[in-house]
Design a protein around this nucleic acid. Structure first.
Lengths: 171, 171
DNA sequence: CGACACATGTAACACGTTACATGATTTG
DNA sequence: CAAATCATGTAACGTGTTACATGTGTCG
């Protein structure tokens, strides 16, 4: 969030509301989660960090708005972010721990968990594919939906592997 | 972390250090990131929330240890966690925003970013596969490594899709 | 004696989430 | 006039990260 907002401001200064819209546009259907409060919180934190500068702009026929622009330091931070090719750890740790916990505590049946989870992922996959169809083909959001779909498919295949491993050894 | 620790305690009470080891054992090579301080922080937060109860145990030939056990409320929380089949949003949002930002600001070339990212993911994939080979076949950690590998492969395929989309339209 | 495993914590900070709070303008 | 959209924020909270701080027991 932080770096992404900074990067959008590096392209062009904006006020909070506008920034939120640009972010939503860049993300497409995936970006509908965005919380409005978070934008302003993040902007003030960025300002405190000296990466952006906010300028109050009076408007005659509307309430005032506050336009933010990146500082030189902020621009450096964006460049550094772009060059950083680290990738967040992607192991499905949480679900794996659920399986271990289910088997260990007897509070649930691991295989039942796997089945329920697969149903949920299939549902999500269908949802993503539905959104992809109703999306303009040249849109950036489409690419992101494709990324979601590929990951969901990978996770579903992983659940298959889990099932063969956990079937038969339910204690 | 929070729920996972709680679930492990539901299986069997433990003190912080031991819990950390059990967590590491359940995760295998993936779990090597675990921060020791976090365990104690989380335990005290769980206690404050009334989900676990800590009992000081004096040891003759060693420093005291503090054993935690789940409360009834804690056990309910574990059961609820196991039944919850929500799945964290999996879209590769951050990298997508980097591409948009790179193209928008001119601070980097999108296609170069994709290439660098793919090299990094291939490196991670090789690393995961190397770890999988040196892992006992019946180990739980192996399954988790497989999950990582599948996701990494999905991400690499997504990067291919990104490349065909972004090639040629570098402004 | 030194290194390593055992064992426990705290303080400060960063980030995201939720919920609350406020008000103007436009449009049906 | 009511509802949607424009527009901005704050307060409290939960969680994770980093870094620091402090020992004891054992084994080579």
């Amino acid at each position: 969030m932080r770096e992404a907002m900074l990067a959008l401001l590096a392209k062009e200064p904006a006020h909070g509301y506008e920034l939120r819209q640009r972010l939503a546009a860049a993300l497409g259907p995936v970006g509908e989660v965005l919380n409005s409060g978070q934008v302003y919180v993040t902007l003030s934190r960025l300002e405190r960090a000296g990466l952006v500068r906010g300028v109050q702009v009076a408007q005659s026929a509307a309430p005032d708005k506050k336009v933010y622009e990146v500082t030189a330091e902020g621009r450096e931070a964006v460049a550094a972010w772009l060059l950083d090719s680290s990738w967040p750890k992607v192991a499905p740790v949480e679900f794996h721990l659920k399986l271990v916990a289910a088997a260990g505590t007897g509070l649930a049946d691991p295989v039942a968990l796997i089945d329920a989870q697969r149903r949920e992922l299939m549902r999500q996959l269908r949802e993503v594919q539905r959104l992809a169809e109703s999306q303009p083909a040249e849109d950036d959001g489409l690419l992101l939906l494709e990324g979601s779909a590929l990951r969901l498919q990978a996770d579903i295949r992983w659940l298959e592997a889990c099932e063969t491993r956990w079937t038969g050894r339910t204690r």
